[in-house]
């Protein structure tokens, strides 16, 4: 699924990565626990999370994730957005809660990864 479709389906605001909307994400995961993201998520996944701290960006970088969607209308501070910009990690912001956001993407064909 293209990041552009992710944006449209989630009616999301693009915080970082307007220039990367044509990139593909092969799979996604929804999680607020970064240790579990590190343990169970495959590289190039799209991460949907309600956490908005620096560890989300670090985790995305360590784990080679494609992009991050902040759910439930939680917007990260400018410092976090800047961290992602420096690293070239696209960030989205949606008002949908985690379950709803994941459900909409799944319904549109973006699958997860079963360990």
């Amino acid at each position: 699924m293209k990041l552009r479709e992710v944006r449209d389906i989630l009616e999301a605001e693009v915080l970082v990565g307007e220039d990367k909307l044509d990139e593909d994400v092969p799979r996604a995961c929804g999680c607020d626990l970064m240790s579990d993201v590190l343990a169970f998520t495959m590289e190039r996944s799209l991460l949907l999370t309600g956490l908005t701290n620096a560890q989300v960006i670090r985790t995305a970088e360590m784990n080679d994730l494609s992009a991050v969607v902040f759910v439930r209308g939680k917007k990260p501070c400018e410092e976090i957005i800047e961290m992602a910009r420096e690293r070239g990690i696209p960030l989205f912001w949606t008002r949908y809660p985690l379950y709803e956001a994941c459900g909409r993407l799944y319904q549109a064909g973006l699958k997860g990864h079963v360990c």
Binding site: D32, L33, M34, S35, D36, V37, L38, A39, T49, L51, N53, Q55, V56, T59
Partner: peptide
């Protein structure tokens, strides 16, 4: 609250 401290650190490192 930071997304860590759930008892996965050492098992993850081993994994």
């Amino acid at each position: 609250e930071m997304g860590f401290g759930a008892g996965m650190g050492l098992p993850n490192m081993k994994k």
